[in-house]
Design a protein around this nucleic acid. Structure first.
Lengths: 231, 231
DNA sequence: GGGGAACCGTACCGTACGGTACACTGCTTG
DNA sequence: CAAGCAGTGTACCGTACGGTACGGTTCCCC
């Protein structure tokens, strides 16, 4: 919002990407304290001087790691055509599964831990960056999907953001925070596909519009009995 | 589980509680880096030597802060009598509101940030401690409540833990992680009572059993149409 | 081929923090 | 009153890390 030309985010050379990759590996292995400039330079066969030339300071390096990693997890594009009913459900399940996979990833967890650990102090720059670079794209994908489903008459809700937050809650529950705290996932949580399907079932029970005899006229579907959405 | 006599967790003297209070304040204000042993000693008018005598080392001090804080947020006792329908819903709403209040608290956020930041490295002792001392009591309270509601025939589910996780997800959504990352709550999220009521409404739409004409015989209510709970 | 830019490896500096030692003080107890 | 205990304040030590400087090497471009 405060960026004039966001079309060209700071991209890095191949060499710098290699260094960022090494830094991410070190971060995953050793956490915050395992990520020292000397350690990165040694592991990546580069000099500390280059690190500071490329990334400014340690914080710039961490920020670069976040943007680099989120650039790798580009979300798939939204649906082009208004999805048919079963396809819409399938897209939701895929989204849920992708979300669980991303949030459970080693690198994602390590970066979130890093940003959260930094967030308490005076400057919470990394936290905002994770929110912007990491979560916003995912949210945007989900919102587009939800609104396409609403336009097609499969779901009904007043506030897209509210529906998204509920969807997120049903999918992720407390798994993310528990993983961040170092907990092991419970046996039932390892089957991400099944968890995703269950969550979407629940979401559609809350926000779904029952199929109609004349599926061709989904115009005024938003008045279904599914949503109260009290204010 | 590995503790022989957990009836007497390490309690601290009044003086030590004062010190822990000061340490929590420093942690809230300055985050991880703002919490140095010298800083605590100065702010609490005690000597570093006393800190190390009382708490062993820095990690012991952090652990003491966690147990001290969670001892202050003792959850209310479970329902004694099987709750009537409206009362059951009210208890759920109260639980939801309490949960949101606790998770949004300054101290809770700071301690979670601390534990999460530490969790990446070799020893994730603080993370486990937060899970055990902070979250388990809340979960126990909710589970007791849910099972009382099931026994009274108001809700139906096969796995209590699964129902609890869904309840948690509907209440908290992604608010906790966003707050941990330093995000500000959205306007609609500040009214915790309304959010709690909405979440419980949704939960009851998923797991609720419709009231019956003969409310006096809630015995075989678990066969209601509300739950599929696919495995 | 020569000049220069980028970069590696290492050595170095200042600082800040965890942890320890020690002298001094006030309060309790026999 | 004397002894002792608990605690305070300060000084101190070792280490580890962020950041800088510098010599040597490679490689590209003119």
């Amino acid at each position: 919002m405060d960026q004039v030309a966001p079309a060209a985010p700071p991209e890095f050379s191949a060499r710098q990407n290699d260094v960022l990759e090494v830094a991410l590996r070190l971060l995953v292995e050793g956490g915050d304290k395992g990520l020292t400039t000397a350690g990165i330079a040694r592991a990546a066969n580069c000099s500390k001087e280059s690190l500071y030339k490329w990334f400014g300071d340690r914080d710039g390096l961490l920020a670069a790691m976040i943007t680099y990693q989120s650039s790798k997890v580009r979300a798939a594009a939204g649906p082009g055509a208004p999805p048919e009913r079963a396809a819409f459900r399938a897209l939701l399940v895929t989204f849920a599964e992708d979300l669980l996979t991303v949030l459970s990833g080693d690198v994602s967890l390590a970066l979130n831990r890093l940003a959260i650990g930094e967030a308490g102090g005076a400057e919470a720059r990394l936290g905002g960056l994770v929110l912007k670079a990491g979560r916003r794209p995912i949210e945007a994908r989900a919102r587009a999907l939800l609104e396409a489903g609403r336009a097609a008459g499969h779901v009904a809700f007043a506030d897209t953001g509210d529906a998204y937050h509920t969807l997120y809650g049903l999918i992720v529950r407390d798994l993310h925070v528990r993983l961040l705290l170092g907990d092991r996932p419970e046996p039932g949580e390892t089957d991400r596909r099944a968890r995703a399907a269950t969550a979407i079932d629940q979401f559609l029970r809350l926000f779904g519009v029952p199929p109609r005899a004349d599926e061709t006229k989904p115009e005024r579907a938003a008045a279904g009995q599914a949503v109260t959405n009290r204010v």
